[in-house]
Simulated scan of single mutants.
Amino acid sequence: MAHFPAQYSTLSAIALKNYIEAAYGLQLISCKFLLRGVSDTYIIEAIDAKYVLKIYREQHRSHDEIQAEVELLNLLKDGGANVVYPITAINGSHLQKFNALEGTRYGILFSYAEGAPVMDLNDDQLKTIGRQMAKVHNITSVVRLSYPRREYSIETTLINPIKSFEPAFNNLPDEYAYLKDMAGKVAQKLCSLDTANFSYGYCQYDFLPKNFHFDDAGNLTFFDFDFAGKGLLVNDLMSFFVHFFMHVYTGRLTDDEAGRMFAVFVAAYSETRALSDDELKAIPYLGVGFWIFYLGLQHEHFDDWSNLFFGVKFIKDRVGLIKVWVDKYCEGGFIEGVIV
């Protein structure tokens, strides 16, 4: 009997364990499904090491876009950056092809980032992140990938998402009007800045603590380059600042302490890579694009992620959060201690 068509299947962890053992010549102890997101993630444990297996969806990443991620991570690894990297199979390939119910899906076996995420960062850790992010940018500012990746621009982070998620705001006209008006103002502000002199290259665009680990010795490893794409490199500093904003928003940090901590990070970054005041001043406006871009992504992939949270309450709460960001940083000026 033919299988009924599927839009999203979950590949068997048992079958994947057998496949990975044969494809990579590994002796595996276990393969466990971890989470569903923009890709499906499995934790693989071998006799002497751990790995992460990611299974991509064509709706989210094309074959060429996945190849670009492989290429970027290999360039970063070869350049001495502390990142996870794709493992090469016995046949010399990095991508594995799976004939899933919904069609072809590709997988990559990655090295494992030892340690754990740290949400309450100390000054030494902030300095390490700053220096290591700058090291990543020294590489991504000069490389040119053979395969395409998305581009982060005014159109892709502001204009296009606003259009795409309009149907979700049918019963929230005031919230939609606010976002549309604010996106237009932010676009105008960014156009007024001399962004031609900003550093440009491949940014990770999700530099939150959930995407890097510190081990017991204080070593840092970056991972999860799912959203890496071409854009202003200060976008990565912006996405890292989102972490401090959320700590302030939830009452875990004061504005003054968030500003002090981000300034420690910025100073360490600047030891390795030049950063202009104008780039820092752009962070609040690029941050509006960050929030709107991910709101559009959540709407676009509602069915695939089973995003039960995406509803009226979530949208109203998210617009409220964006208003706080705008009032605090776009209207009120960026944080004391970084840009006065």
Rank of each mutant, 00 (worst) to 15 (best):
V338G: 07
Q298Y: 06
A183D: 11
D224A: 12
R273Y: 08
S141H: 07
A6I: 11
E102R: 06
Y205C: 13
G320H: 12
K189G: 08
Q67I: 05
L35A: 07
L11R: 08
H213I: 02
Q204L: 06
A13L: 00
D216M: 13
A100F: 08
G259P: 09
F198S: 09
C330Q: 01
L121P: 08
T157M: 15
L121F: 01
I20L: 12
F265D: 05
H301N: 03
A134P: 10
Y106R: 05
Y106G: 02
L121C: 09
S270L: 03
Q59C: 02
F241W: 14
A177K: 07
F198G: 08
Q27S: 09
E45Y: 03
A263C: 00
N307E: 11
P173G: 01
R273V: 00
E166C: 14
R273Q: 10
R252A: 09
F302K: 15
K17P: 01
G107S: 04
V186F: 05
F98Q: 07
N122I: 03
I20K: 04
G229N: 09
V83M: 09
A196Y: 08
K185M: 11
A258W: 00
L101A: 14
R149F: 01
K32Y: 02
Q132I: 03
H60P: 00
A22K: 15
F240G: 04
G184T: 11
F225R: 05
D174W: 11
N211M: 13
L121A: 07
R273S: 05
E257T: 13
G287P: 03
Y178G: 03
L158A: 12
Y205A: 15
E175G: 01
V84S: 14
G115D: 06
V242Q: 07
L286Q: 03
E175H: 02
V319D: 06
N197H: 12
D278S: 14
I315Y: 02
F310D: 06
T128R: 08
S164A: 09
I20T: 05
N74W: 06
K50G: 02
Q67F: 10
I159S: 13
L53P: 04
A187F: 10
L321V: 02
I90N: 14
D215C: 10
L76W: 04
K180Q: 11
E331Y: 06
R144E: 15
I87D: 01
V52T: 03
R105C: 06
V234Y: 04
G201M: 11
H247Y: 00
F33R: 06
T272Q: 12
D224M: 13
P148T: 08
C191H: 15
N160I: 14
G115Y: 04
R260K: 15
S153N: 06
A6Y: 03
E65I: 12
L297F: 15
A228D: 05
N82S: 15
F225A: 10
S192F: 00
T195S: 15
Q125N: 01
S111H: 05
F225E: 05
I322P: 11
L28D: 09
G320E: 08
D194A: 04
G231C: 09
I55G: 01
G259N: 08
W325T: 00
N74R: 13
D256A: 15
G218E: 05
H247K: 10
A6E: 14
T128S: 05
I315M: 09
D215Q: 13
F225K: 08
F212M: 14
K185H: 12
L190K: 09
L297T: 14
